[in-house]
Amino acid sequence: MNDRHSELSTELVISEILRWGVRCSLFLIVLGSVLCFVRGVDYGSSGGTADDLYSLINGEGSFPHSLAWLANGLLHLQGAAIIVAGLGLLISTPLMRVSASIAAFTLHKDRAFALISVIVFTLVILSFAIGAA
């Protein structure tokens, strides 16, 4: 049904997707954080003060509620927007690996597990729809 070789290549695809998803998001989160500190407008000048910290942790402020904010922030290389993009990529990495496993199992004609992957994918989308509603 599935020989050792095809099994290994499925593992390799999944492993590479996770690796690059994490690498890219880590890069964006680190870059965004460095920009926030260096510029001094986001987190306060020269490392900020205790008051800056209080408002950063407790304030409702700066958080993105719109895609427009995100797009605009990315265009202007704003640290917070880059961090948000990195976090978004990080959060979507597991779903990308499920999509990849659908493709890999289908390619190896492993119908049972292609179907299982599709079920997982559908349930994840469904629970997101329920949770977001």
Partner: peptide, 22 residues
């Protein structure tokens, strides 16, 4: 995969603060 669903919901609500989560 389970956590990513939960995280996406918090993310859309705006509960994932960049300063804390980074």
């Amino acid at each position: 995969i389970t956590a990513s669903t939960g995280a996406a919901i918090y993310f859309m609500r705006g509960d994932v603060k960049p300063f804390i989560a980074a």
